[in-house]
Design a binder for these strands. Structure first.
Lengths: 155, 155
DNA sequence: CAGAAATACTCAGTGTGCTGATTAATTGCA
DNA sequence: TGCAATTAATCAGCACACTGAGTATTTCTG
């Protein structure tokens, strides 16, 4: 009697959107490398030698998840991790040649997939689509990490 | 050198959006019942006595995932599954009184959470937000399930 | 009615994603 | 210097999400 219409629930839509993307990625980009794995490769192309935690921050993965993703990429020989001689807690990450090649190959395919994925929207709609999602996601993230702790005015 | 800007990748945005939602759900709705679990409860409020596969179809979960979600809800005493006397392959699902109560309670909280989540957007923007995401997700789903096999015009 | 095809569900395996607890290393302060 | 706090990473535990393979039941067809 009191059932709700889930098509107006942003969480439900977000999940469906991600699932749809997952399937398309699998058929058009790669069955081996996942989208989060590609994000990690991409982060290390942009900034080689990052440590694990920072990579996670860049791509939006928590400490546990980033550890597993990196371990898989390591097993596949796409990156290597070395202890930071300056700070023994850190591992510094770099892509191997194979990792570089894989990133280049997937970059092309990902661009094609994005075109297909966004094809139902006009160019202007695509811009709005990005803008709206980004604003909602950013605001929700800020709710958890209150950016400026608003330094107390006086002790 | 050839790194890509992930903020223009719909898959990456979809993932961030879902993560943001997950966190907000946890703090504002429930730490026990997840959003997919609520979707299942909701489907069974709308249509009591559905079988497992159909519930999965309604909420967008595959056969394996829906099985686990239902088993968890069963363990919590929120629903029960009975073999369909008409078709021994099926399990028919119904909410318990506790399940009904839980659904009612979470419906209220979910509405509040949605308001907070969507607060960064104006009312018109929220409409556009739903429309764009729905269109992209629907189109991608159709790519995998070619809706109408386009019945041949003549034998 | 019997065998084949379809269907509902289960199971094993993999991967993403979170929290809380633990370990190891560094930093900061008295 | 020496101990406390912080920080990077790991580990265990839970939950979602998919595929491919297997089982049981029903349906379809000859």
């Amino acid at each position: 009697m009191a059932a709700v219409d889930l098509t107006t629930h942003p969480g439900h839509l977000a999940r469906r959107l991600q699932q749809a993307h997952y399937l398309l990625w699998n058929t058009m980009v790669s069955e081996e490398i996942t989208s989060p794995q590609f994000a990690v490769l991409n982060a290390l192309v942009a900034e080689p030698g990052l440590d694990q935690r920072t990579v996670g921050e860049r791509v939006g993965l928590d400490r546990s998840t980033i550890a597993e993703v990196i371990s898989r990429l390591g097993r596949r020989g796409l990156l290597h991790k070395v202890r930071d001689p300056q700070d023994g807690r850190r591992f510094l990450l770099r892509l191997t040649d194979d990792g570089q090649r894989t990133h280049r190959k997937l970059t092309v395919r990902t661009a094609r997939m994005n075109q297909v994925f966004l094809a139902p929207l006009s160019a202007e709609e695509q811009t709005v689509f990005f803008d709206l999602i980004r604003r909602v996601a950013d605001a929700a993230e800020d709710l958890r990490n209150p950016a400026e702790p608003l330094v107390a005015h006086q002790g």
